[in-house]
Design a protein around this nucleic acid. Structure first.
Lengths: 107, 107
DNA sequence: AATAAAAGACACCAAATGGTTTCGAATAGG
DNA sequence: CCTATTCGAAACCATTTGGTGTCTTTTATT
């Protein structure tokens, strides 16, 4: 299921899954969390959450640090910039459309 | 493979595929294109491209119109706003980080 | 009227995805 | 030292995904 850790995972694919977006959200609210504190937020088992975290790590959206027997995860938001850059190209299109619609409504 | 056309497709899933992002890009550059003009941009066959367009339609990123024997597709960028909204929450995180890094470098 | 072009519908397939359970290794604590 | 906790790795499984080829229908063109 997983690529080798050193292989880069597509950021767009990484954020496509709702579980992974929720993981990103939870990690945004706290500096660092071990796996066993992340797991109870979800219905699925620990291993499944761990796999989602691995996919986020492959996209470098999440960083990893071992501390004793715990494995702590933290958010690294930078790769999301790529999505933002991609979107910025299309922003002008929907803004144009919104402007046109606004003009029509004002007439 | 496909959901019923009236079922809403997740925008994040729709943009996760590179072929679909390229379709979005091509359609951004032209008002409207029939399937047989979109197909030669890709290595895959017509049916595959058609399916990708269907997924984009289910996410309402692409609109569809039949004109004679042609089937014309055009971009509808509005749903991308949802991605932008999602990103905007995390923007402050990477900007903070960038600022911290900048300060360190300036010392 | 006959033919060619365009596209949708469908059956099919291999590979990827998202989950599970089981096992073993490392660490913490009584 | 023994036991419990935490986690990763691996095998496994069902479903989804991304592609193919074939067939039919509709529409243009000659």
């Amino acid at each position: 299921m997983l690529k080798k850790t050193d292989e880069k995972r597509d950021v767009f694919v990484a954020i496509a899954d709702p579980t992974r977006r929720q993981l990103i959200r939870i990690l945004a609210d706290s500096k660092e969390l071990p796996l066993h504190e992340l797991t109870p937020h979800f219905q699925m088992g620990r291993t499944a959450v761990s796999k989602h975290l691995m996919i986020l790590r492959e996209a470098d959206i999440v960083r990893h640090r071992k501390s004793g027997r715990e494995s702590k995860y933290r958010l690294n938001p930078e790769p999301l910039q790529e999505v933002k850059d991609w979107l910025s190209f299309y922003e002008k299109f929907w803004k144009e459309r919104a402007a046109i619609l606004k003009n029509i409504l004002e007439e």
